[in-house]
């Protein structure tokens, strides 16, 4: 069993770390992605995330189960928050446990890359002078890496 969920309340990373921890695990990696204030000189006031929730949860589970197949002995939990998030808030948490640390690191990075490719979640940046749906329009900043 694993948890792969879209949530609206603040994310508590320890919940997910605890979930994946088990006696066979010698390593747990926990990645948290946060709302960043400055992106290439443009100041973000806050972010609004939206998801196609049932499909997003399905895709998060697919990513997690894919990892558990690809890296034997891993266990994965992923949560992404939606709604209005303030600077510094956690948008996403990925916890991976594995017998040895290299798998936990690799699998965790793979998870965030896949989330950014296939999970139907959208980020709207709200600035002092406007808004944009990231990835949809080509306003400033042109290229945003969103971790």
């Amino acid at each position: 069993m694993s948890i792969f969920e879209i949530v609206t309340e603040p994310i508590v990373p320890q919940t997910y770390a605890d979930y994946v921890l088990r006696p066979e695990a010698g390593a747990v990696t926990v990645f948290t992605g946060h709302v960043r204030e400055w992106t290439e000189g443009v100041r973000t006031l806050y972010l609004a995330y939206e998801a196609y929730v049932p499909m997003a949860q399905k895709k998060l589970a697919e990513i997690g189960h894919g990892i558990e197949q690809k890296w034997k002995g891993t266990r994965v939990a992923i949560a992404h928050r939606i709604g209005e998030l303030q600077i510094g808030d956690i948008a996403v948490v990925i916890a991976v446990s594995s017998p040895h640390r290299s798998d936990a690191y690799e699998a965790n990075e793979y998870a965030i890359e896949r989330i950014k490719e296939i999970v139907p979640i959208w980020k709207q940046e709200i600035w002092e002078d406007g808004t944009q749906w990231v990835g949809y329009q080509k306003k400033k900043p042109r290229e945003i890496s969103h971790d």
């Binding site: 992605g33 995330y49 998801a51 196609y52 499909m55 997003a56 992404h80 948008a91 996403v92 965030i112 989330i115 950014k116 490719e117 296939i118 999970v119 139907p120 979640i121 959208w122 980020k123 749906w133 990231v134 990835g135 949809y136 945003i144 969103h146 971790d147």
Partner: peptide, 10 residues
């Protein structure tokens, strides 16, 4: 059917 614009989670 859902129309999915470029995703930007994370």
């Amino acid at each position: 059917a859902a129309l999915i614009p470029p995703v930007s989670g994370g």
